[in-house]
Design a protein around this nucleic acid. Structure first.
Length: 581
RNA sequence: GUCCCCGUAGCUCAGGUGGAUAGAGCGUCGGAUUCCUAAUCCGAAGGCCACAGGUUCGAAUCCUGUCGGGGACACCA
């Protein structure tokens, strides 16, 4: 379908004209059309479409842009859908399209319905998006929120653009922090058995969320591990606690409307010897060797730092600053060693990989990209791999930063947040700025000024349209395309804006930037509100016109289409399109 | 010291992989409600796109450097 969107179709028209000029000898036979763009001009008064073709190709044609533009417009003159082709500025060609083009698009929105904007751009491409992947040691807090929303919206966006998307969560259930979790759970377990455990010791997780876990373990296991030695209960408590934490995380994610397809366990990866396989292969190809790391620079080396020989991955060969150890001196795998094997596993099951990470992991991007490049190239299947870094969110309340620390158990959970402001506000807000820019999230502001929140602005547009159609139905007027030819300039402007939705989807998917959809929806809603309000002063501009059922039907038909596009867009963002407010 | 991200209106942020005169919201000022929902709309004021070079027909956008803000520089996860 991607080659059938309206804008793409006219790009084809332009290209045909250019090819004709090649045949005429105006343009050399080897002319590259690569940089030729056909897009709606920024300023709508310039027309419906603009192309830079003359400016881009003038040099190759050995002429000046405006002269070449003359030749191009001549070729376009007799196209039935093009009503005018003007040359402007340094050599832009501005095209105006016959209104039938837009009215056809309006009907198309109705025909395609929920599928309007869907693209086949990503057909045959299986993309694995790994996001959230929070450590299974507690509930989701606000630090996880942005990455979760961005990853989920990106997944939906890619899906809508025709990709086969796998949403994956990597469970870090093999490191030291899950042992800490197990010990913390054990304390709560003893507490549940009636022991007075006092303060939770330094270094363990003090949060109340482990109390029910302790109780459940006490119920399940009785007191047989109450005084047992740690080596006896640790594996059991670890597994039990991780399972329960993952249940907690899954339910927190569900509150945000997020559901993963695959949960991959790091422990299972180890159990399956995947890191060993990866190491063997890398050693074979001289990409892992035994070497000694330099002391860390820029700050005082750790007290216990000493040079040790470790198996190192040659990530410098792929642009990293330093080779990276895949095993520790005690023989255990490093996080990276396992992660490398994990990415290899993902690459075996997908054509493209995307990771959504917090910016605090920026330092490890190069090594994992190096690893994927090394492994996938070596296996003869270079896998495109993108790491999207999501910047920190500075939580504020009334202009003051909110201090959060896991240590004290004092942090704002996603569940708290959603209870206070709602899923739609959280999601939309996280998507109204580009992810790589830092952001302040003022709790008080979002709550108090919720009326000014953009999400309501967009939802209100949808609700308004919905109510208007219902209200009109009471008068016996229903949406009807019969007289859409009577729609005027303002209505056509609305259709033109709506008609950009498929382009927005494709370019946002290509750039992997779901926030663009949020901004587009805001603009569309703005145009709708503006038109709607005209009806206040000029009753003949209303949707509901008792005295002109034909025009009214046409406007309602348009209104429904705008509502459809808003619904489709909000669907991609995972925000509800409400029927009434 | 090295690496990554950011720097656009008083504030919060867009700016479609180089295009035409730089855009919204909030805030400020001035207007609109006998109406399909005013959770809306219309208008005004507000800019050296951090700074300096470079690339080309053309730069907020790409390159280099400087300054400023944030983050990262373990055998952690």
């Amino acid at each position: 379908m991607s080659d059938q969107t309206l804008y793409a179709a006219f790009a084809g028209t332009i290209e045909t004209a250019l090819s004709a000029l090649v045949d005429d000898g105006v343009l050399p036979a080897d002319t590259s059309f690569k940089n030729v763009a056909v897009e709606p001009p920024r300023d709508p008064s310039h027309g419906d479409l603009a192309t830079n073709a003359a400016m881009v190709l003038a040099k190759q044609a050995k002429t000046n842009p405006r002269a070449l533009a003359e030749q191009i417009t001549a070729k376009l003159a007799d196209h039935p859908a093009i009503t005018s082709a003007e040359i402007a500025g340094p050599g832009f060609i501005n095209l105006r399209l016959d209104s039938s083009v837009w009215l056809d698009e309006l009907k198309l929105i109705h025909i395609l319905g929920d599928d309007y904007g869907r693209s086949s751009m990503g057909a045959d491409t299986k993309v694995n998006v790994e996001y959230v992947s929070a450590n299974p040691t507690g509930p989701m807090h606000m630090g996880h929120c942005r990455g979760a929303v961005v990853g989920d919206a990106l997944s939906s966006l890619l899906e809508f653009a025709g990709h086969d998307v796998v949403r994956e969560y990597y469970i870090n259930d093999a490191g030291g922090q899950v042992d800490v979790l197990a010990r913390s759970a054990h304390i709560r377990y003893r507490e549940a058995l009636g022991e007075d455990v006092g303060e939770i010791p330094e270094g363990l997780y003090p949060g109340d969320y482990l109390i029910p876990v302790g109780k459940a373990l006490a119920n399940e296991l009785g007191d047989r591990f109450q005084h047992a030695s740690e080596e006896d209960w640790l594996p059991i408590f670890r597994a039990e606690a991780v399972t329960r934490m993952m249940d907690l995380i899954r339910s927190d994610l569900a509150l945000l409307g997020i559901h993963h397809d695959v949960f991959s366990s790091e422990a299972a990866l180890h159990a399956a010897d995947k890191p060993d396989e990866a190491e063997a292969w890398l050693r074979e190809h001289d990409l892992v060797y035994d070497g000694v790391l330099e002391a860390p620079k820029g700050k005082a080396p750790p007290e216990d730092w000493e040079p040790v020989e470790l198996p190192l991955f040659r990530s410098t060969k792929y642009g990293d600053d330093q080779d990276r150890p895949i095993k520790k001196s005690n023989g255990a795998w490093t996080y990276f060693g396992a992660d490398l094997a994990y990415h290899m596993q993902k690459a075996e099951n997908a054509d493209e990989l995307i990771d959504i990470w917090g910016a605090d992991h920026a330092g490890t991007v190069k090594r994992i990209k190096a690893a994927v490049a090394a492994l996938s190239e070596g296996k003869g299947k270079p896998t495109p791999f993108d790491v999207k870094l999501v910047q920190m969110v500075q939580l504020m309340r009334g202009g003051e930063p909110v201090k959060m620390s896991k240590r004290s158990g004092n942090f704002i959970t996603i569940a708290d947040m959603i209870e206070e402001v709602g899923k739609d506000v959280v999601r939309f807000t996280m998507l109204t700025r580009k992810p790589e820019a830092q952001m302040d999230f003022d709790f008080a502001k979002v709550v108090e000024q919720s009326k000014d929140n953009p999400v309501f602005y967009v939802q209100y547009a949808h609700a308004r349209l919905n109510r208007t159609v219902l209200k009109s139905a009471e008068e016996g007027i229903s949406p009807d395309p019969a007289e859409i030819a009577r729609l005027g300039e303002e209505e056509l402007a609305l259709i033109k804006r709506a008609a950009q939705f498929p382009r927005e989807i494709e370019s946002a998917a290509k750039a992997r930037e779901p926030h663009r959809i949020a901004f587009y929806l805001y603009d569309l809603a703005s145009e709708l509100h503006s038109f709607y309000t005209m009806g206040n002063k000029q009753p003949e501009k209303r949707f509901k016109l008792e005295q002109d059922v034909g025009l009214s039907g046409a406007r309602l038909f348009l209104g429904q289409a705008i509502g459809q596009v808003i619904r489709n867009g909000l669907g991609v963002l995972g925000v509800d399109a409400v029927e009434a407010m």
